[in-house]
Design a protein around this nucleic acid. Sequence first.
DNA 1: ATAAAATTGTTATATTATAACAATGCGTAA
DNA 2: TTACGCATTGTTATAATATAACAATTTTAT
Lengths: 132, 132
Amino acid sequence: MTQKIDFLSKNQQIVLEIIEKAKEPLKAYSILFSVQKKGIKAPPQVYRALDRLIKLGKIHKIESKNAFVACKNDSCTISNATAFSICDSCEMVTEISNPKLSKYLANFQDKTGMRYNKYNLEFFGLCKKCKK
Amino acid sequence: MTQKIDFLSKNQQIVLEIIEKAKEPLKAYSILFSVQKKGIKAPPQVYRALDRLIKLGKIHKIESKNAFVACKNDSCTISNATAFSICDSCEMVTEISNPKLSKYLANFQDKTGMRYNKYNLEFFGLCKKCKK
DNA sequence: ATAAAATTGTTATATTATAACAATGCGTAA
DNA sequence: TTACGCATTGTTATAATATAACAATTTTAT
């Protein structure tokens, strides 16, 4: 039987918790370091948990940073439509939750007629604090 | 003085040429392998050329694949607004060049009021061939 | 021509991620 | 119950991606 979709294993819970607590996106190996006291010892354990949490939509990967953030959107159970705002200076990352944008992108069609089932958008700039 | 913006060094030309010839996005180490006969021997040489070519807008990095493609848009001299269509099955990648989309994204403002100077968008799905 | 600055070459190593297999747990049919 | 099959977790090793640090060379300004 495949794992129930709403069940998190111990490792998955540990990894999720640390990502949720963090104010910044976390790198896989910094997660590994933090959770070693809890018995997670090796990279594959972290990467497996990350993969699973991504599939469940509990976290997202910031591709340009190879880092992971918790999904702020409670209703997000599958992460097929993501948009982030990233500050080039302080590296702050926030998930953009904008219905117009999601609708626009979900309905976007290019001339090839290819149909998309997933997208990821990353915006870069300076956040208000850093612009001052 | 900093390097003139339209001048490519030998290594940069070699790397650009191989990326332009390729039908698929190329990985850094596959580029390295291909250009070793031309005298490029070590990773930093490839990565420097890639960085420079990206800044010039001659190539783009597909973040979700850690791979590099040539920019198809001749007028692209700075790569601050990119959008790609990626097939999950055959891994084909095409750059989307759609004025409406670029305009929409360039003008996008989220509620924080943060102003963006760059974005990268990656769409995933099945291309026409693979959908059949 | 020569010093300063920038670029390129080279070695080594850091960082990110996965393959491969062993150990463990877990449902289920006999 | 038990033992078989299968999924999950643990472990070791290594692959793949990327950069730091410094030496050699080339370019530029004077």
